[in-house]
């Protein structure tokens, strides 16, 4: 009996020891619970990404790229950067997405700043500010056409009041797409900024006030430095959303010239020329541009204070 009990105890010891040894290396059996998520990411992100990556190095025989630049692995990339009609889509897209994301982030700060505290009607105002996020881009574009198009209410109003003689072109050009990016992107930036702001302890500003700082100095020296890392992240996410603009570039933009964004080029290659490797190459270039911009922003962010902000966490 005694030896049996001893053996059982030593087995238990060994088991404990294994668990402890794993714990020493930072492993825990509950980590297995992450497995579904890992499978999900591998199946839905990593595999398609790697597949697209290798596809982009296998130019399609008979395609324009192969005819001009041979069948080497970089023919599609070569073709993209050699052809101004393709190459310029990067600038076209950046010209839309950078100002759009920047505007959304900057505009969200004062509004979120006012919306921090508790006041009557806060929920109503938040709802109004956030509703556009629930509308699809297509619906937003439809609305823009009806409201800001040549015969839309806005132009009719401007004409009736006599501010303009001819309808102003707000749509089917650069501005139409930018408006659409702002309408659909602002709620997102606002919600993120609001959550970052409410993580900042409000007594910090009160302390600054008792030390003689006026509202602008309080914002400039206390709130803004603590908020800046969050604004960096908000900008990155807003930018990525805006960079992949597609439906509104077609519906309220000028998709063959002014707003021929990079996703239109990819769509064109994939579903009009049926050149999937070219489309993959464009998608890879798209990802690379996004990574470069995010890398720059995160590089800037790493130079800021990023510790606790003393808030509710």
């Amino acid at each position: 009996m005694a030896t049996q009990a001893g053996a059982a105890a030593s087995v238990a010891d060994a088991r404990m020891a294994l668990r402890h040894r794993l714990a020493d290396r930072g492993l825990d059996r509950t980590l297995l619970l992450l497995l579904p998520a890992v499978i999900f990411i591998v199946a839905l992100f990593i595999y398609p990404f790697v597949y697209g990556l290798q596809l982009s190095f296998q130019p399609q025989p008979g395609s324009e790229a192969v005819q001009q630049y041979g069948s080497g692995p970089f023919a599609d990339y070569h073709n993209f950067f050699a052809d101004p009609y393709l190459r310029n889509t990067i600038w076209t897209t950046l010209k839309l997405s950078l100002p759009g994301a920047l505007f959304n982030v900057i505009a969200s700060v004062p509004i979120a700043y006012r919306m921090r505290g508790r006041f009557r009607g806060k929920r109503t105002i938040t709802t109004i500010l956030v509703v556009p996020i629930t509308l699809g881009t297509v619906l937003t574009a439809e609305g823009l056409l009806a409201f800001m198009g040549p015969t839309g209410w806005l132009n009719r109003l401007l004409l009736d009041v006599g501010i303009v003689d001819h309808p102003v072109r707000f749509t089917h050009n650069y501005w139409g797409v930018l408006f659409s990016l702002i309408i659909s992107g602002f709620p997102f930036a606002f919600l993120l900024t609001l959550s970052y702001l409410s993580g900042i302890d409000p007594t910090l500003e009160r302390a600054a006030a008792t030390l003689g700082a006026g509202w602008w100095q309080r914002f400039r020296h206390i709130t803004l430095p603590l908020l800046a890392p969050g604004l960096g992240i908000t900008f990155c996410l807003s930018f990525v959303l805006a960079f992949s603009v597609f439906p509104s570039a077609i519906m309220v933009g000028d998709p063959s010239r002014q707003t021929r964004v990079i996703s239109i080029a990819a769509f064109h290659a994939a579903f009009e020329q049926y050149d999937y490797s070219m489309a993959s190459a464009i998608a890879m270039i798209m990802g690379a541009v996004e990574l470069i911009v995010i890398g720059l922003v995160l590089g800037w962010r790493s130079r800021l204070y990023r510790g606790a902000t003393g808030g509710k966490g």
């Binding site: 302890d201 007594t203 910090l204 600054a208 006030a209 008792t210 006026g214 606790a308």
Partner: peptide, 29 residues
């Protein structure tokens, strides 16, 4: 307004500015 009263206040949770050094905090006023 509080910024013009010229009173010093010590808060229960200290309310130190986390992004400033000790010197920066004291020099703020």
């Amino acid at each position: 307004p509080p910024e013009q009263r010229g009173f010093g206040m010590v808060f229960q949770n200290y309310a130190l500015f986390p992004h400033m050094s000790v010197r920066g905090n004291i020099a703020f006023g």
